[in-house]
Design a protein around this nucleic acid. Sequence first.
DNA 1: CATTATAGCTAATGTTCATTAGCCCGTCAA
DNA 2: TTGACGGGCTAATGAACATTAGCTATAATG
Lengths: 194, 194
Amino acid sequence: MSTKEKIMDAALTLFAENGYDGTSVEQIANIVGIKAPSLYKHYKGKEDILNALIDSAEERYEVMFGSEKNIGKVPQSREEFIKVTMERISFTMRDPIIRKTRMLFVQEQFRNERISEATTRHQLDGIQRMFAKIIKGMMDEGIVVKDDPKLLAAELTAPAVLQIARADRQPQCEKECMEYIEKHLRHFCKVYMR
Amino acid sequence: MSTKEKIMDAALTLFAENGYDGTSVEQIANIVGIKAPSLYKHYKGKEDILNALIDSAEERYEVMFGSEKNIGKVPQSREEFIKVTMERISFTMRDPIIRKTRMLFVQEQFRNERISEATTRHQLDGIQRMFAKIIKGMMDEGIVVKDDPKLLAAELTAPAVLQIARADRQPQCEKECMEYIEKHLRHFCKVYMR
DNA sequence: CATTATAGCTAATGTTCATTAGCCCGTCAA
DNA sequence: TTGACGGGCTAATGAACATTAGCTATAATG
């Protein structure tokens, strides 16, 4: 891993934990194993690092939600839908980089316009568009009752998003959150699936 | 309004907008109309102000969700339920103190244990317990289909909570958010109400 | 009227922080 | 061999910040 990448990595960890203002350039340099001034050989300043982190999050988002490739095939049964959905949610909840990015965005959303806008785009539009497509697929196959796919997607994902946010701030409740999400998912299936 | 209250008020506004670390004692004093050192006649320090704000938020929560008085009577029709629910949500979304407290809590949730714990208690437990009671009441009256009231409450409130969070960071979308919430609410009623 | 507490002020302190200046060493191309 | 450059270093700078010390005026209390 190059020094530039190490800086990004360390900054993301610290920003997520202590916030942007609560993190000093020296702390970042310490983790990387260099002195603070050396950091300026790689980035113009602290804000430049934040912008690089936002860029990188946007790229990741583009890869995950930009194309429709990663939706996979339409689940053919209730249990299959529950399984792949729980896997997807579990990954999103636990992946360290996604988790730290979420925590960073949550904290900076009111001061940084790019982050504010990206949060809405990722958390609401992206996820719901994805699930709307899956649900639409299942509607077409007759597995799910006919209804507005976007509304159903929002109902499906919103409780999960809130539980993920809870697990971010209270990691000791992670298991409980996942169970709660599964309960919701099963209830959703009971109501809307044949 | 006493100076002590003015300080709380100014601090809440600034903390919500710029975060705790992003706010200086001098900025708070400026809004109040005193010099920074005078502030220490009222509070031991910056953190003391934050703690007072948390105390005050907890008291407010206790008043709003502590007793069951403020649930009001069980709505007798779909339209009545929609009306009172939208009013409740609109108030929660727009009331300046509640809004700023929410924004402060969102930003500090990872660094302050009291806030972390309170966020879960207010955002998940409190709201859902309240709506579960209303829904339970309507189930008993036969207006809502028999089901787990807490699950239904979570499904009802989760999309609203996310839209309120969106309106907090993008106030220009407030109207859009409210319309979105009403759409969800009506869909919820279509699915679960007779 | 005397005294005491309250709540403001200015000046100062010590710390932390982001950033810059300028030096040095190793690598690699000309 | 030379020279340029990348990437590290130390030292320094200047600003911001939380907090303390100590003075003063006004209001409340005896």
